[in-house]
Write a protein that binds this DNA or RNA. Structure first.
Lengths: 371, 371
DNA sequence: GCTCAGGCCGTAAACGTTAACGAAGGTAAA
DNA sequence: TTTACCTTCGTTAACGTTTACGGCCTGAGC
């Protein structure tokens, strides 16, 4: 196990100075093309990897990242932001500044927030592209300026974004289908509500649900899907229609957050106890519905972990220049009445601002930080 | 936002040198008690936090941790080790040496491995205490020597261990009960097999299962539990008896890894398609059973994440002297036939030695790192 | 021939912590 | 008194990278 190669090793091997090596490796001006290629070549053959500790110590620049997300209509985005915050605070090494830019509604103020982040000259952006097409040009601009962008929850294809962090849509849709089939004994009419088939994630979930249902439970009948376009009234209205047309509906899978209006529509049609609900996400209004077993199960999208992962990927890229993975997909959690309390307790516990700290044989200097 | 206080600030404020401050803060010999308290006091008032980058850079000592686990009879411990390895390699900053000490069977060679780790003078230990009582004295010895020990999968109470990382037993048992009730329509006889009621984790899972079943599905009848003491033949034999005595058994929840002998017993009794199986963990032999729907669902204990968390907690303590949490409980994942492929793909993908890299519209400057 | 600009490169001082070395002072034994 | 030794503390050289500064050289302009 030999010592790691450092700048000085490269410098001595070529008979130059560390300053030159540094400039060559970082494309800084003041190096002849000839020297530059020689340095880069030598760095590669020696397997040079920068010592990050030394780098941090030497340059005190602190990274700035902008987090552009929806305002917390539900708790989902609060959790995402909490996850980002946690992971940022876990980085004791450096100081990462996080600037939160939120917009009130889907697609509203989204471009402005992105533009503001670029104008402010941040080093990286974590964003929820609620309207990918409208952000398209801004994201390409960021890409051209070499400002990495990480998407959370929803992808924005062909925008040059660095990475995307999301729940695996296939696993979600297939799990929902398998559960639905199991709960209903493999027969009956089922339906799906989604935001819009134009959104990749929702289309994929729907497809996975349909495919799995067909292959595992061929006797079940899948009705046409409902698109609510993220409008609650539309969700209520369209699902009311659905229930009217299909009084024998046995189950429904709500892939969006808008499960409450669908539940209310079923309640008003007096079909609540006839229909097995599988919903998405976990928020306060959903808790009593799960507890009363109106909702059989909900697929939790782990917003906090999504936030953590997004920050981690972005930070790793900013610091090391490489990206561990361009697509991080998480397995969803299944929440039913049985394990509901576990998740509720966990949320409330983790949302406490300070970290839980119990000292045990720690170096004395640390005691104070948490007194 | 003022500059962070460093050793020199404390030193100047007290009219001493940084060397003294350093020694005082680390309980190194050669500092008068009077000076020591003054330094610690001043560190507190100035809000000193060590600069870890400088610390790494300065001290070339690399941490050594011992990982004491079972040999991979199933893939569980391979996954745990893989998770530890991943997290260790993600630490680009420093070099952490990991020494794996494995023992062939439950309780066999466990003490020797622990003793060897202590003798070798490691800085920390991650262990699976298969027989907590036999490890008790060794762990207390480690605690007295200020060597942090992190338990994975199973806790070892009253041993002075630093932390424990495990799956939440309540969530597992309750989820299993709720699923069982849902699958069976809320009625029928069900049973549980476990290793031994003397092991906390299994007792908790059983209790959670029983409690949830009683409260959510009062019509269901829970039979007496089976203890297999981690012996496969015992599992087969006892479950055969159970099936003979209860030909109308509707479901069984296997909380241990030993689900195959139970499945075989049911198969041999020609009851396989009459009984709903909920099992634990995910290993190759279980895959065809899930695919054929002999197993309705399995509760995946996320060994890789357990390994990652264990290493993370230990490392954070070793480096910062503080521990984020003394009890890390993870939510289990539910694997059914529908989403089985997602987990299989993920396992095979993640177990590849190099990191997964999928290029997708990456910024041009990045392509080279993965060429 | 002299200056001046600009390209190229070496030098050295940071960054904050660690740890080895040594100096000062006091105490005790010879 | 000398010698030896201990406690307490200051000094200083690392650790590897960044960056400001300055020096050398070549070529162009006067």
């Amino acid at each position: 196990m030999k010592r790691k190669t450092k700048l000085l090793d490269i410098a001595e091997a070529l008979g130059v100075s560390t300053g030159t090596v540094h400039r060559a490796l970082h494309n800084h001006p003041g190096v002849s093309p000839m020297t530059k290629t020689r340095v880069q070549q030598m760095a590669k053959t020696l397997g040079y990897r920068p010592n990050l500790a030394a780098r941090y110590l030497s340059s005190k620049r602190n990274l700035r990242v902008s987090v552009n997300t929806l305002q917390g209509t539900t708790s989902f985005w609060d959790e995402v932001r909490a996850g980002i915050n946690e992971e940022a605070r876990a980085l004791v090494m450096e100081n990462v500044e996080i600037e939160y830019r939120t917009y009130p509604r889907l697609g509203e103020g989204e471009e402005e927030a992105f533009e503001a982040a670029l104008k402010a000259g941040v080093d990286g952006i974590i964003t929820f592209p609620s309207r990918p097409q409208s952000l398209h040009s801004w994201m390409r601009r960021a890409s051209r300026s070499s400002i990495p962008v990480v998407c959370v929850a929803t992808d924005a294809p062909n925008t040059g974004r660095l990475a995307v962090v999301s729940i695996d849509t296939l696993a979600s849709g297939s799990l929902a289908a398998d559960l639905m089939g199991s709960f209903l004994g493999g027969k009956g009419k089922v339906a799906v509500t989604l935001s819009s088939l134009a959104i990749t994630e929702h289309a994929e979930k729907y497809k996975a649900f349909a495919t799995t249902l067909r292959s595992l439970y061929p006797k079940m009948q899948l009705q046409e899907s409902i698109e609510d376009h993220d409008v609650e009234s539309e969700a209520y209205q369209k699902s009311s229609e659905l229930f009217k047309k299909n009084p024998d509906l046995a189950g429904i899978y709500v892939t969006t957050e808008a499960s409450i209006p669908v539940l209310n529509a079923a309640r008003d049609a007096h079909l609540l106890d006839k229909i097995t609900f599988i919903t998405t996400d976990l928020f306060p209004a959903l808790v009593p519905e799960i507890r009363s077993r109106a909702v059989a199960a909900t697929i939790y999208q782990r917003p906090r972990t999504q936030g953590r992962m997004a920050f981690r990927v972005l930070h790793e890229f900013l610091v090391e220049g490489e990206c561990p993975s361009f697509q991080v997909t998480l397995a969803p959690h299944l929440v039913m009445r049985g394990n509901l309390d576990f998740f509720l307790q966990r949320q409330s516990l983790e949302s406490r601002p300070q970290r839980a700290v119990r000292l045990q044989s720690a170096s004395p200097e640390l005691v104070e930080y948490f007194g």
